[in-house]
Design a protein around this nucleic acid. Structure first.
Length: 414
RNA sequence: GUCCCCAUCGUCUAGUGGCCUAGGACACCACCCUUUCACGGUGGAUACAGGGGUUCAAAUCCCCUUGGGGACGCCA
């Protein structure tokens, strides 16, 4: 991407610091036309005025001093080293109406604000002033921004009108709130895209989810491709009420996207998480192995960050009997099953047990040990992944080598 | 305090005066599938904040109340 933003569009410069002269010119124009004035009052003086207003039960809005310093005199004083801010003068009292694209007509009384600063006494322009001028000069047609800016619109409208510029169309979108209905902030947990990425969310899922807070598709479908999103997205379907961020639903949406991913892609995306947890897999770069492993694990994967937990039992160095295997270990049948399973493995000549081979082996274990039902397969599962619950054995077993399976069953028998 | 915005299931929402005994999605519950877990399938419970109007008819329009949020900076 470009080093600077000087060239991103035809109405540059786009960097605020390079537009200082433009802002100053416009402020001067307002001063010359009597819509703004140089204000030499100090912070202390201004504070005293506000305090007095509050005491009198009035809103603390700054108004022009009794005697406005004339532009010529002001410039002369500034040339001698004095400093002054340039303030917009609100003057007449009337209503301004924004035809908000999300909320409809919103009416603001002009006395809602006092005379506001355009250029600080240090020469720097303020946000609302820059906004209005940039929108006009850069030929912005639509301004969509958060609801918190709705009342700022009044100032921008006043400025635009005084400068003789046409106002862009405005649309103020509602907030996304935390579960406590307060503005989303750090204490609500993840707040940046980076945070969500680290938690294992897919960018496309997060994007789709955010799209749906404050907007809905015409036919009510929720999972939309990038192309559909672009095609369908219109301001007419914005919701003016604020939305609560529901991570549970995000989780669901993420699992949907996750499961729809081609396996090669999914494999790539879980690598950082597997590496982070130092999971070492006996996959040997075999696409078929990855394919089988993914097809069995992705059904219980909601985020990429679930991968380490799911793949861990496959990593032999991490193999251990989990706490919930204790009950199975205590069953009298378990040892018989493990011994029969071990014998089957020892008699097996290949390196990897296939699905069909495993089914046959399990059958023979059933007969030899004289055990069936959960007393048969739960001990076998414990001897494979160290816990009695998990993915299907006939898929799990072929993921491991015969040697690894033997070492595992030995740990159970130890 | 003043001004502004907002108000449908727990949550995201559909709904722009009759199609609404309010539809979908997540979550929840039950059942089915399954020799476990998950996936999947079927079904269920749950909402128009309250009060007044307008109208033959109101979730939908108007007013008030209540509740939530925002803005009132020489911050952005």
């Amino acid at each position: 991407h470009p080093e600077t933003f000087e060239d991103v569009g035809p109405y540059g410069p786009y960097r605020q610091s390079r537009r200082k002269e433009i802002y100053m010119e416009h402020a001067e124009r307002l001063v010359n036309s009597g819509r703004a004035y140089y204000d030499f009052r100090t912070d202390a003086e201004l504070d005293a005025i506000k305090e007095a207003l509050i005491k009198a039960g009035k809103p603390p809005q700054i108004e022009a001093p009794e005697k406005i310093v004339s532009p010529d005199e002001a410039r002369a004083r500034i040339a001698k080293g004095e400093t002054a801010a340039i303030r917009f003068q609100v003057k007449e009292k009337r209503d301004y109406v924004v035809n908000d694209l999300v909320r409809g007509d919103v009416r603001f009384p002009s006395d809602m604000v006092g005379d506001f600063v355009c250029i600080r006494s240090n020469g720097m322009p303020v946000y609302n002033f820059c906004c209005a001028i940039d929108d006009a000069l850069m030929k912005i047609t639509h301004v969509f921004r958060a609801e918190e800016h709705l009342s700022n619109t009044l100032r921008q409208l006043m400025l635009l009108e005084a400068l003789g510029y046409e106002a862009p169309k405005f649309g103020h979108l509602s907030f996304i709130l935390g579960a406590d209905k307060q503005k989303l902030s750090k204490r609500h947990g993840a707040t940046s895209c980076h945070d969500f990425k680290e938690k294992g969310y897919l960018p496309e899922a997060l994007n789709n989810f955010i799209l749906l807070s404050g907007w809905s598709s015409p036919d009510g479908r929720e999972i939309l491709s990038r192309e559909e999103q672009i095609k369908l997205f219109t301001h007419e379907r914005f919701n003016s009420a604020p939305a609560v961020f529901d991570e549970t639903k995000l989780l669901w949406m993420n699992s949907e996207y996750l499961r729809a991913l081609p396996h090669e892609e999914l494999w790539e995306r879980i690598q950082p998480f597997l590496k982070g947890a130092a999971i070492d897999l006996p996959e040997g770069g075999d696409p078929a192995w990855r394919d089988r492993a993914l097809s069995v694990f992705k059904t219980s994967m909601q985020t990429l960050a679930d991968a380490p937990r799911l793949f861990e039992p496959i990593d032999e160095s991490k193999f251990e009997l989990k706490p919930d295997a204790a009950e199975v270990k205590g069953w009298p049948e378990s040892v018989k099953v493990w011994e029969a399973w071990k014998a089957e493995l020892q008699a097996f000549s290949g390196n990897h047990v296939s699905e069909a081979e495993f089914t046959a082996m399990q059958d023979r274990v059933k007969n030899v040990a004289g055990v069936k039902g959960k007393h048969l397969f739960m001990p076998i599962r414990v001897a494979v992944i160290g816990q009695p619950h998990g993915a299907e054995l006939k898929i799990l077993v072929p993921l491991l080598t015969k040697e690894s399976l033997l070492r595992r069953v030995d740990k159970c028998l130890a």
